[in-house]
Nucleic acid binder design. Structure first.
Lengths: 245, 245
DNA sequence: GATAGTTGTCTAGATTAATAGACAATGTGC
DNA sequence: GCACATTGTCTATTAATCTAGACAACTATC
């Protein structure tokens, strides 16, 4: 199973970048779980059919990301950096979902605004067009590392002041509780994946070509009345999702 | 909300490629749903802060993908190419999931093999290490367009000959039925996203830097006994997932 | 038909990515 | 200590990408 141009020229993605992406998959497949070492750069160069310098550029990029560490005279070590798995179920909560996979999880409010509901958001929240909604933008951190950024919409009449509560409590679940909603359920979650745009790259410190997992979800109270609809983007190299019925 | 460096130099992704990815998101956000036309190339060039020729390279790439169509003297039109949404629930089925979103859906068997269960697959199927399993590789097509490729594992004792049944019936659901299993349920689905590797690019005709949505799932019979575990990769620009509880 | 706005094509030059080779620096094992 | 394998650094060359400008070809509108 050797050889072969796993890389393509003139594709708009630099060879070293393609190789970096390839090595990331290689590591994720657990191909060097035993020694914890990547094959030598010269071997990789032969495998990918490129010059050693090109592989070095790929490794430097991955080292900058913190995924590997090159040690002169020894080799290139894979740094254990497991992807977090976020459970998605009827009771999806960010902090609780991170659970004991990390020491800390928090969200930071970026922006909030109030305005009339329109289009898709109005339909998902089952509001008449023009009814007031509160929009909240927020970023999620795990152990001080940005892993997500979200846009949430709430019906303004029922949840007036929720932005302040989110800041005060550092959690949407607790903000809901403070406003009298002690439990809520996830009605549906749409999942897609695409390249990060400029804003997402900035917020989550991603490089061009990086991937975001985008979820669009609706939460309802126990009577099935929509209380929140959200779009969340996760840095795909840091988070995966586990859907359980 | 104008201007500036939505693109990054020295990132390993060519500017025209970053711009193509940006325009794809731009279109997906419905930014030009009214006229069906993209802004002129000169405008886009100014917006992204690059030369018009660079934008032209991006548009040529997207035209090659079939997402846009440039007409001399007129403009660049967005070709309606909606993403399919595949429902993921307790009763997830590929063909039925595509449903009326397309004229036809089919799978093609690529490879099958039998061997001893090991590691993760053995654990997920609750088999003793060494018990026989059947491995099946298959590609999914919608309207003759490749949208997915999968790797499935079945306990060999219970489903001997399933590969032949899949070929005969063109469906895993019908293959199960032919072997006496008329109903089964999805127990869990893990979702992650990453860059396509060389094989996936070839099977689904993707370019370097393209994204795959990878699902890892386990199906059980109605008694909760595992009957199948699978890894499926979807071309992220053609498929999104809808999880419902 | 004239005009303005848009895409298509060509040439040339500057910048960046990739290859090639030589050799230094450092860790491992004998 | 010594040989060996591996990563780190340097120079030089070639190939690809991006910029710049000029102008042709085409469409829609007046």
């Amino acid at each position: 199973m050797a050889e072969r141009k796993a890389v393509e020229r003139h594709s708009g993605v630099a060879l070293w970048r393609q190789i970096a992406d390839g090595i990331r998959v290689f590591i994720a497949d657990g191909a060097c779980r035993d020694s914890g070492l990547l094959p030598p750069a010269a071997d990789l160069a032969e495998r990918f059919g490129v010059n050693r310098h090109t592989v070095r550029a790929a490794l430097a990029f991955l080292a900058d990301e913190g995924l590997v560490e090159s040690i002169q005279g020894y080799g290139t070590r894979v740094v254990d950096k497991r992807q977090l798995t976020l459970p998605i179920s009827r009771r999806t909560r960010f902090s609780a979902g991170v659970g004991d996979q990390a020491a800390s999880a928090s969200i930071q409010l970026l922006r909030s605004a109030e305005g009339p509901a329109a289009g898709e958001v109005a339909a998902l929240l089952r509001l008449a067009p023009g009814e007031a909604i509160i929009e909240v933008e927020e970023a999620g951190y795990v152990d001080s590392r940005p892993v997500s950024c979200s846009q949430h919409f709430f019906p303004a009449r029922r949840f007036a002041g929720i932005a302040a509560e989110i800041v005060a409590t550092g959690s949407i679940t607790r903000a809901f509780a403070a406003l009298g909603l002690t439990d809520y359920l996830r009605a549906s979650t749409d999942v897609s994946a695409r390249h990060a745009d400029a804003r997402e790259r900035e917020l989550m410190r991603l490089s061009p070509g990086a991937i975001v997992l985008e979820t669009r979800s609706v939460n309802t109270d126990l009577d099935g009345v929509p209380v929140q609809c959200s779009t969340t983007r996760f840095a795909a190299d840091r988070i995966s999702l586990r859907m359980t019925p």
